[in-house]
Design a protein around this nucleic acid. Structure first.
Length: 939
RNA sequence: GGGCCCGUAGCUCAGUCGGUUAGAGCGCACCCCUGAUAAGGGUGAGGUCGGCCGUUCGAAUCGGCCCGGGCCCA
C-alpha cells in the first residue's frame, strides 16, 4: 500500500481515548469542579431563571452510602441537571437527618465496649458525642455523593441538628402545642421494669422464655344470636397477669367458631359438664386436649361475624369489689387460628394490637402497671404486686371464679432488654400525640392535600392515601436522649401543658443560640419568665420523634433559605417513604400551613439482586457503590439508573452492569468518532441548512425529533424512554448508517468539497446535541469530551443548556421517506450477505448489485445515490420486474436485488472498484485524481 | 396474616381500546472489513407474555385463584 496515498486520506484523528478508565479519571474531574467553584458559578449564572426546587429527603448520617442511597441521589441529580439544562435555576440543597436512636445506639455500644455506663454520663455530654458521630458520617457521605458526580450546595447543606434547625423544629411543635392538637395520652409501649424505661424495637432481643399459658372462660351476657344464650367464649393467653387489665375480646370475622358442650372429662379437668363453650373450629381439638375434655356434643357452628355486638362478663367479676363491667367482643384482623382458641383477650394497656383495637373502639389504655412493674391502685385485688409474681394469685382468683379452664407451660420467643436481659412487658405510658381528628381536622386537610398533589407514578396517591385515612394519632414522643426535646411544661395542678407563645419563644431563642441542649443546661425558670413558677410545672424530658424533625425540613430549609422556595416542586424518595418522610412532611405541613410542602411526589423502587430478591448480608448479594465505582466508575452507575424503570424495583448484578458498560462504550465511541472526524473543524466550514443534502437534513430532523422526546420526557420525569431513543440513534442511525455512508466523503473528498463540508456541518451539530443531552447522565464523560472538542481552556459543559434547535429541522416527511429508503437498502445488504457467504465478495465495495423496484419505490429514490447509501461501488436501479431468483424480503414487497460484481479495479485511495481506475497512472479513481490534484496545488 | 405493587427474549425495556405472525436495543452465534481496531459493518437464532381456570368470535391486555418477588404494616 502506498504510504503516500494513505497520507492524503483524512482519517479520524483524536486523542480522546477509546478506553474510558473512569475509576482513574473521575476523581480528578470532581476535584476540578470543586476547585473551580462550578456549583457557585452555575448558581450565579442562573439568577433570574425560573426556580426549580427538588427538596432533598435527608439520609441518616450513619454509615456509608449503599445502593439505595446511590439510586436516590443519582435520580435527584439527574432531575436537577436536566431541569438546569432545560433553562431552570435548579438549586439543590442536600440535607441530613442527624438525631435519633441508631446514632444513640452506636454511641451506647461504644460505651459498653469500654465498660462505661450511659446513665452515669451527663446528658449534654452524651448528646455531644452523638453530634460528633453524625458530623463524621455526614462528611463521609458527602464525599461519596460527590464522587457519584452529584452536584449540590455541599458546602452549605441543611441538617436537623443545626442549632437553627433544632430551634425551628421546636417552633413547629409549638404550633401544634398552641393550637391544641398536641396532647398527652397513654400508649402501650415495650417497657423494662428493671431499667424502668421504654425500649425501641432495636433495643429488644428475643430469647426463649417459659410462660404459663391459660384458657379462660368469659360468660356472654349479650349476643345477637339466640343460640349463644348462656354460652361462654374461651380465650387463651400467655400472660395471665394481664387478665385484670382485660377490657375486650377480639374475634376473627372470617374464622369459623363452634359451640360445644363437654359431656365427659378426664381426671383433673376444671371444666364443668354441660357448660356451653365457644372456640374456633380449627382449634377445637387442641382445646379439648388441653382442657382434658374427653367427650363433647357439638351445639352449633357459626362465623365470627355472629359474635358482633356481643358482650361478656369480666372473669374476675366481684373480686375485691371490682370488675363489675362487661367487656365487648370486637373484630380484630390480628386474630389467627395458629394457636390458642381464635378468641384473643384484649388489654389495651399491655399490647400493641390491644392498644390499637381499643383506641379504634374508644377503649382507652389505663395506668394499670407502674414503672417498677407493680399493679397500680386501680387494679382491685392485686395493687402493689409485681406482674411477674402475679401469675399464681391471678390464676387462683380465676379458678375461684370457675373461669380457669386449663393451664400449661409454654416455651416461646419473648422480648428481653438488650441491656439487662430482663424480660419486657407492654405497659401503658404517658406519651405525646398530635391529634388527627380534633377541631384542627388534620386528617381532612392531609387527604385534601393528597388529592391536590401530583404523584409519579400515580399509584403513590393511593398508597399514602389509604395510610393517612386509617392512621392513628401521631405519637411524637420518645424516651430517648439524642434529639429535639418536647420542650413543654405541664401544669402540676391541672395536668395540662402550658400553652404560652411567650414561653415558646424564649425556648426557641435559647435553642437557636446554643442548641437544644439548652433544655437541660438552662434553669427552667428562665424559660417560664416572671409569669410562672417552675415548681408549679413538670418539665417534660421526652424527645421528639425524628420523623417530626425530618417532617419539618421544609420549614427551616425551603422557608428558611432565601435561595429556595416553599412549597417544593418535587419530593423524591423510595416507596417506603409513603409511611415515612412523605407522610410526616405532609402532616406537619398540613397541620401548620394547611397544605402539602410539595407540588409533586416521585417515588422509586428498591434495589434488588438479579433474581429480584432484596440485598442482605445473609443472602450474600450485597453490592457496594464505592466498590462498583472502583471497578466500573460513577458514569456506569448513573447509566444503570437511567436504563431502568425506577418506578419499580430495580435489579443490579455484575452481568447487568456489564451490559450497562456495553451501552456506555457505544455512547463513548460515538462521541469519539464525532470528535475524530471533527478534527480541525472551523466555523468557516459550516454550510447553511438549505445547502445540505437530504441525508444531512434527515439527520437534523432526527435531532429535532430527539430534542422533542427528551424535553417531553423530562417534563414527566421519564428518562428511560429518551435514553433508549438516544442510544438507538447512536447505534442504528449514526454508527450503522450515517457514519458508515459518509465515511467515503469524510475520508476521501477534498476538504472544500461541499458534500464533505455538509457532513462535517452536521457532525458538529450532532456532537453538540449529543454531548449536552448526555451531560446530565454521563457527567464525567461528557465533560471530558467537551474539553477535547473545545480545548483545555473551555469551561464546564455543565454550565450549558440543551441546544435550541431551529423549528425548521423538524421534517416528519423526511423521517418517513428515509425509513422507506433504508428498507430498500436492507434488500441490498441482504443480497450482499449471500454473496459474502458464497465467498464471491468480502467488502461491499466489491459489488455493484441491481435493485428492482416498483414505480412508487422508484419515485421514492429519485435524486438519491443508492450506491453511495449501500456503500457499493455501483448500483443499477431498475423499475420493473426482477428475475425469479433475485433476493427479496417479505417485509419489503415489490423490491428485489440481484448480485453483480463491481467491474474494474480497486482505487488505491478510496477502495471503490471502478472501471476508470485501470487508466490512472496512480491507480486511483477520477474523484481521487481530482482531489489529489487539488491537494498538490494546496501544498 | 393484612394493605399496596411487580412478573413480556440471556439483560434492560416497548406493546394504544381486547384484534394480523408479540417488538426494540444490547448481549449471543455466524460472516465480512482491517482507513473508528480492546473499534466498525452485515445476517441470524432466541418467547408456554410467571402458572392454572374463566369471560370473549378473539386475551400479553379483562376477571378469579395459585406461584415467585418487593415495600409497608402486624
Amino acid at each position: 500500500m502506498s504510504q503516500d496515498l494513505k497520507s492524503t486520506v483524512f482519517l479520524p484523528k483524536t486523542d480522546f481515548p477509546m478506553r474510558a478508565a473512569l475509576p482513574e479519571r473521575e476523581p480528578a474531574i470532581v476535584k476540578r469542579w470543586i476547585e473551580t467553584g462550578l456549583w457557585e458559578r452555575i448558581r450565579r449564572q442562573s439568577k433570574g431563571r425560573p426556580l426549580f426546587v427538588l427538596h432533598d429527603g435527608p439520609p441518616y448520617a450513619n454509615g456509608n452510602i449503599h445502593m439505595g442511597t446511590t439510586l436516590n441521589k443519582v435520580l435527584k441529580d439527574l432531575i436537577n441537571r436536566s431541569r438546569q439544562m432545560l433553562g431552570y435555576d435548579a438549586n439543590y440543597v442536600p440535607g441530613w437527618d442527624c438525631h435519633g436512636l441508631p446514632i444513640e445506639w452506636q454511641i451506647e455500644q461504644e460505651y459498653r465496649k469500654r465498660g462505661a455506663d450511659k446513665d452515669a454520663v451527663p446528658i449534654v455530654q452524651f448528646r455531644a458525642e452523638c453530634r460528633r458521630h453524625a458530623e463524621k458520617y455526614l462528611d463521609i457521605q458527602r464525599k461519596e455523593f460527590q464522587r457519584l458526580g452529584c452536584l449540590g450546595d455541599w458546602d452549605n447543606p441543611y441538617t436537623t441538628m443545626a442549632f437553627s434547625s433544632e430551634a425551628a423544629i421546636f417552633e413547629e411543635l409549638a404550633k401544634f402545642l398552641n393550637n391544641g392538637s398536641l396532647y398527652r395520652g397513654l400508649k402501650s409501649v415495650m417497657w423494662s421494669t428493671v431499667e424502668k424505661t421504654a425500649l425501641a424495637e432495636a433495643e429488644v432481643e428475643y430469647h426463649d422464655h417459659t410462660s404459663t399459658s391459660i384458657w379462660v372462660r368469659f360468660p356472654l351476657t349479650r349476643a345477637l344470636d339466640p343460640a349463644l344464650a348462656n354460652a361462654a367464649v374461651v380465650i387463651w393467653t400467655t400472660t395471665p397477669w394481664t387478665i385484670p387489665a382485660n377490657r375486650a375480646i377480639a374475634y376473627g370475622e372470617e374464622i369459623a367458631y363452634v359451640l360445644i358442650e363437654p359431656t365427659e372429662l378426664a381426671e383433673g379437668s376444671t371444666v364443668r359438664v354441660g357448660d356451653r363453650l365457644v372456640v374456633a373450629e380449627e382449634l377445637l381439638e387442641s382445646f379439648l386436649a388441653s382442657a382434658k375434655i374427653t367427650g363433647h356434643a357439638l351445639r352449633g357452628r357459626f362465623p365470627g361475624t355472629a359474635l358482633a355486638s356481643a358482650r361478656a362478663e369480666h372473669p374476675l367479676k366481684g373480686l375485691a369489689g371490682g370488675y363489675g363491667f362487661d367487656v365487648p367482643l370486637l373484630p380484630g384482623d390480628f386474630v389467627t387460628t395458629e394457636q390458642g382458641t381464635g378468641l384473643v383477650h384484649v388489654a389495651p394497656s399491655h399490647g400493641e394490637d390491644d392498644f390499637n383495637l381499643g383506641t379504634a373502639h374508644g377503649i382507652a389504655a389505663e395506668d394499670t402497671v407502674g414503672p417498677d412493674g407493680t399493679y397500680t391502685p386501680i387494679i382491685p385485688g392485686f395493687a402493689g404486686i409485681h406482674v411477674f409474681k402475679a401469675h399464681e394469685p391471678v390464676m387462683a382468683a380465676l379458678a375461684e371464679h370457675g373461669a380457669l379452664l386449663a393451664s400449661a407451660p409454654l416455651v416461646h420467643s419473648y422480648p428481653h432488654s438488650w441491656r439487662s436481659k430482663a424480660p419486657l412487658i407492654f405497659r401503658a405510658t404517658a406519651q405525646w400525640f398530635i391529634a388527627m381528628d380534633d377541631e384542627n381536622r388534620l386528617r381532612e386537610k392531609a387527604m385534601a392535600a393528597i388529592a391536590a398533589t401530583a404523584f409519579v407514578p400515580d399509584k403513590g396517591r393511593n398508597r399514602i392515601g389509604s395510610m393517612v385515612e386509617s392512621r392513628p394519632d401521631w405519637c411524637v414522643s420518645r424516651q430517648r436522649a439524642w434529639g429535639v426535646p418536647i420542650a413543654v411544661f405541664v401544669d402540676k395542678a391541672t395536668g395540662e401543658p402550658l400553652r404560652d407563645p411567650e414561653v415558646c419563644r424564649r425556648i426557641a431563642d435559647a435553642f437557636r443560640a446554643e442548641g437544644a441542649d439548652a433544655w437541660w443546661s438552662r434553669d427552667p425558670q428562665e424559660f417560664l419568665g416572671e409569669k410562672y413558677r417552675a415548681e408549679d410545672f413538670e418539665k417534660v424530658d421526652d424527645i421528639l420523634d425524628v420523623w417530626f424533625d425530618s417532617g419539618s425540613t421544609h420549614a427551616f430549609t425551603l422557608e428558611g433559605r432565601p435561595d429556595l422556595r416553599w412549597p417544593a416542586d418535587l419530593y423524591l424518595e423510595g416507596s417506603d417513604q409513603h409511611r415515612g418522610w412523605f407522610q410526616s412532611s405532609l402532616l406537619e405541613s398540613c397541620g401548620t400551613r394547611g397544605r402539602a410542602p410539595f407540588d409533586a411526589v416521585l417515588t422509586h423502587g428498591f434495589v434488588v439482586d438479579a433474581a429480584g430478591r432484596k440485598m442482605s448480608k445473609s443472602l450474600g448479594n450485597v453490592l457496594s457503590p464505592m466498590d462498583l465505582m472502583k471497578t466500573h466508575g460513577a458514569d456506569i452507575l448513573r447509566l444503570w439508573v437511567v436504563s431502568t424503570d425506577f418506578a419499580e424495583d430495580i435489579r443490579i448484578s455484575k452481568d447487568i452492569l456489564e451490559r450497562t458498560a456495553d451501552s456506555y462504550r457505544k455512547a463513548r465511541n460515538t462521541l469519539r468518532y464525532l470528535l475524530a472526524n471533527l478534527h480541525g473543524f472551523t466555523p468557516a466550514e459550516i454550510l447553511p441548512d438549505e445547502e445540505l443534502p437530504e441525508l444531512e437534513r434527515w439527520v437534523l430532523h432526527r435531532l429535532a425529533e430527539l430534542d422533542r422526546a427528551i424535553r417531553a420526557g423530562n417534563e414527566r420525569y421519564d428518562f428511560l424512554g429518551p435514553y433508549k431513543d438516544l442510544l438507538e440513534f447512536a447505534a442504528i442511525d449514526l454508527s450503522a448508517f450515517y457514519f458508515d455512508v459518509r465515511k467515503d466523503s469524510l475520508y476521501c473528498d477534498h476538504p472544500d468539497d461541499l458534500r464533505r463540508r455538509a457532513a462535517r456541518t452536521v457532525l458538529d451539530r450532532v456532537f453538540d446535541c449529543l454531548v449536552r443531552w448526555l451531560a446530565p447522565i454521563l457527567v464525567f464523560t461528557t465533560e471530558e469530551a467537551w474539553r477535547y472538542r473545545h480545548g483545555e481552556g473551555v469551561d464546564s459543559i455543565h454550565l450549558e443548556c440543551f441546544a435550541d434547535l431551529p423549528e425548521s429541522w423538524y421534517r416528519p416527511e423526511l423521517g418517513e421517506r428515509w425509513a422507506k429508503v433504508r428498507e430498500l437498502r436492507r434488500v441490498v445488504t441482504g443480497v450482499l450477505e449471500i454473496e459474502r457467504r458464497e465467498k464471491r465478495i468480502g467488502s461491499s465495495l466489491e459489488a455493484a448489485p441491481a435493485l428492482y423496484v416498483t414505480p412508487e419505490q422508484h419515485r421514492l429514490l429519485a435524486g438519491l445515490d443508492m450506491a453511495e447509501l449501500c456503500i457499493t461501488s455501483g448500483l443499477k436501479l431498475v423499475e420493473g420486474e426482477a428475475p425469479a431468483d433475485a433476493f427479496r424480503l417479505d417485509e419489503v414487497p415489490g423490491a428485489a436485488a440481484s448480485p453483480r460484481p463491481a467491474k474494474g479495479e480497486k482505487c488505491l485511495r478510496c477502495w471503490r472498484v471502478l472501471p476508470e481506475v485501470a487508466q490512472s497512472p496512480e491507480h486511483v479513481c477520477q474523484r481521487c485524481t481530482t482531489v489529489l490534484g487539488r491537494l498538490r496545488v494546496d501544498a
